[in-house]
């Protein structure tokens, strides 16, 4: 993969809600760039605009002004159907509350994005094998037939990660991926994401948890709708994953 390839490029991204005097500026001229293979965190207190930014980066909504180029394609002014297509092929989501389909097996949950793939990149017969591969990848090879209620929180989130990976997206957006998990499961999830990152995945994590941010290379702090500071953790993403002991120390530091 070309390391210099730009995945996210926004310039003067602005989002306003409401009209006239009641106008609220949620995002104020945000310009940022994320390269392929980067692991980036977006942090900020509530009301800082991080959710709004995430929704736009995730193509769930469009900016009021400014431009957003995703993987070389300008997605600032796409309609609902076009956005749905972009979400399907280019973006993988991981949510705080997993959002798995109830009473549906892990395997079927992972296959979900494929049924909305209008490019028909993967023939129907290959879906199941593809989903099995993804579940193996997240370490759930023995839980494929289980339904969400039979899985632990950490396992459910891993199913969600497998689901995010199945369309081979250009980037993964994780919204508080460890928010509903105990620290041990949270750590496992972060290690899994870090492993994916080491394999070359581009990952953007939206969080308010500094421990989570520790795992990333770069932390973008938002405040009042604009970028406040950008902290480079200085981690070389080509280094192997941190040992649990070292990880704990870096968290404590």
């Amino acid at each position: 993969m070309d390391a210099a390839h730009t995945i996210i490029e926004t310039s003067d991204l602005t989002k306003t809600f409401g009209m006239g005097d009641a106008n609220v500026v949620a995002l104020d001229h945000v310009s940022l760039e994320v390269k392929s293979g980067e692991l980036v965190a977006i942090m900020g207190p509530s009301g800082s605009g991080k959710s709004t930014l995430m929704n736009i980066l995730g193509c769930l909504s469009t900016p009021s002004s400014g431009s957003y180029i995703l993987d070389g394609e300008n997605v600032s002014n796409l309609n609902k159907v076009q956005l749905a297509g972009i979400r399907n092929t280019k973006i993988g989501y991981i949510f705080q509350s997993y959002n798995l389909l109830a009473r549906t097996t892990a395997l079927r949950n992972v296959m979900l994005p494929l049924i909305y793939d209008r490019s028909h990149k993967h023939p129907r017969e290959t879906w199941e094998q593809l989903a099995r591969d993804m579940l193996e990848k997240v370490g759930l090879g023995d839980r494929m037939g289980h339904q969400p209620q039979e899985l632990s929180g950490g396992q459910q989130q891993r199913v969600a990660i497998a689901r995010a990976l199945i369309t081979d997206p250009v980037m993964i957006i994780a919204d508080e991926p460890t928010g509903n998990l105990d620290s041990r499961s949270g750590e496992e999830i972060m290690k899994l994401l870090n492993n994916l990152h080491l394999q070359g995945a581009t990952i953007v994590i939206v969080t308010h948890d500094p421990i989570v941010a520790q795992y990333t290379e770069r932390v973008i702090h938002l405040k009042d709708g604009h970028i406040d500071t950008v902290v480079h953790n200085g981690k070389n993403h080509h280094l192997p994953a941190l040992e649990p002991q070292a990880q704990a120390e870096s968290v404590a530091a």
């Binding site: 995730g58 159907v81 749905a84 979400r87 092929t89 959002n99 979900l112 909305y116």
Partner: peptide, 11 residues
């Protein structure tokens, strides 16, 4: 969720 993984309004 279905929308986020690519379902269109028609879907």
């Amino acid at each position: 969720l279905r929308q986020s993984v690519g379902a269109t309004p028609n879907d």
